[in-house]
Design a protein around this nucleic acid. Structure first.
Length: 409
RNA sequence: GGAAGGUUGGCAGAGUGGUCUAAUGCGCCGCACUUGAAAUGCGGUAUCCCGGAAACGGGAUCGGAGGUUCGAAUCCUCCACCUUCCGCCA
């Protein structure tokens, strides 16, 4: 959420930034009109309240009460609309972000060697069948398309990725958590994940409860401090959370239907940092560096993409993706994403920090450590051998307990 | 699922119809005293609205909504959440 005062005084800046992100911002004039009406009414209500307090006359008291009732109803109506529109105003993109559609995304770095195979590389679905570590068909049978089983050594591989990641992150000063996989809608909306429309809703809702299945632990990690005041001395606070993630993937029918690249449920290790505004860039670079370090240690080739404004989404001010090499597709595919959301989320969730006696909204940043399904795909495909077996990256060997995952006899 | 108790400022916590401009304590910020610190003293300490360049001034806000009343933190109703006990259960 942006500060309404900022919006009032910088309408053109807000418009320009939103258009750069590809958002329809036609409602901005209505928002400003509602803001004006809302404040006028609030003034009237407060004056009436003050009168009511002082008044001792019976007749006049009743009069005031009646008028107050009308004004309050009107106020509530306007406020509701106002709040709704406020939530639809996207965050500003950072100054260093290129304005433009996703085609303007920039590859800022390519690291590592693309593996050369003297056979036609298989995809993870085939490798998963041959090694018997994935059962996608039965996931579909028991649950639905987009759900899958991980079996046998696959289980150890996923656990290995988690362990490898959290050991590293603890050393880097992160507090590790296993978070709830559900959260009240307030936290979902607070992080900027509200649906643009019901049709495109990405989040599963639990019927009859004020609970959504989380799409990422970002929601539960940022939500940790909802309605709290964080001591400025404690910043930066760094969290790494393990959770399941649920996505309806509405609007992406037909994309990546094969395998487990795009699914409704997966597990992920996610970083969230609360920091002082002036540390934004520094922390963002740190998060990206951690993500790169992990892929370097896995010895898998990757690219770092700096997203143009059109690919930022509502909350992000700046975003980098890492794309890892996927041999079966002969291209790099997204495996991590790290964003700065400035004070967009903390404003919505009323998370403040006290620095020298002053309350300000801290900045939040997030970044993927491992989207475990996608990391597994990358390992399976990049480390595959001709028969469909694959090696375990050196850094994971001790965690998995073996060097190769063999095909099932 | 059943029952009881609770929700007040950064925290603890008082407050059962007007004097609440919300006690008191702690924390934090500033100032004074001090070589420095501690201790002490004084002042401040949230959010929103209006006016103002600012300093500041005025007003509103005691979980949410509704009701009773001239008047509600305080009484009544509903809702949300929290705690404890019971039941069920990994």
């Amino acid at each position: 959420m942006l500060d309404i005062k900022f919006i009032r005084e910088n309408v053109e800046v807000v418009k320009k930034s939103a258009i750069g992100k590809g958002f329809d911002i036609n409602f901005l004039d209505e928002l400003l009109r509602l803001d004006k009406d809302r404040r006028t009414l609030l003034g009237e209500i407060e004056t009436l309240n003050a009168e009511r307090k002082k008044n001792t006359d019976k007749e006049k008291g009743k009069e005031i009460k009646e008028l107050l009732g009308k004004k309050e109803t009107e106020f509530r109506l306007i406020s509701e609309k106002f709040d709704d529109l406020m939530l639809r105003v996207p965050n500003l993109s950072a100054d260093d972000v290129k304005i433009g559609s996703p085609e303007k995304n920039e590859v800022i770095k390519t690291v590592g060697e693309i593996p050369k195979f003297n056979f036609k590389p298989k995809d993870h679905v085939e490798i998963g069948q041959l090694t018997d570590i994935l059962d996608i068909e039965r996931g579909t049978k028991v649950a639905q398309s987009g759900f899958y089983y991980i079996k046998n050594d696959g289980v150890f591989l996923e656990q290995a990725l988690i362990n490898f990641a959290i050991h590293k992150l603890v050393k880097k000063g992160f507090t590790v958590l296993i978070t709830p996989n559900v959260a009240k809608e307030k936290n979902v909306v607070g992080c900027g994940y509200q649906a643009r429309s019901e049709k495109e809703r990405q989040i599963y809702h639990i019927e009859g409860e004020d609970l959504d299945l989380i799409g990422t632990a970002e929601i539960t990690l940022v939500g940790l401090h909802t309605d709290e005041i964080i001591d400025g001395e404690k910043l930066p606070i760094k969290y790494a959370g393990i959770s399941s993630c649920y996505r309806t993937e509405a609007g992406s029918y037909g994309k990546d239907v094969r395998g487990i690249l795009r699914v409704h449920e997966f597990r992920k290790v996610e970083m969230v940092v609360f920091c002082k505004p002036e540390d934004d860039l520094k922390i963002h670079n740190e998060l990206l560096a951690i993500e790169e370090e992990l892929w370097q240690e896995l010895e898998i080739s990757y690219q770092v993409i700096k997203m143009a404004s059109g690919d930022l989404g509502s909350a992000a001010a700046r975003k980098y993706d890492i794309e890892a090499w996927m041999p079966s597709q002969n291209k790099y595919r997204e495996v991590t994403s790290t964003s700065s959301t400035t004070d967009f989320q903390t404003r919505r969730l009323n998370i403040r920090t006290k620095i020298d006696g002053q309350n300000i909204f801290p900045y939040t940043l997030n970044g993927t450590v491992f989207a475990l399904g996608r990391a597994m795909i990358a390992i399976m495909e990049n480390y595959q051998k001709e028969d469909g077996s694959f090696e375990i990256p050196k850094v994971l060997k001790d965690f998995v307990g073996k060097k190769v995952i063999e095909i099932k006899k």
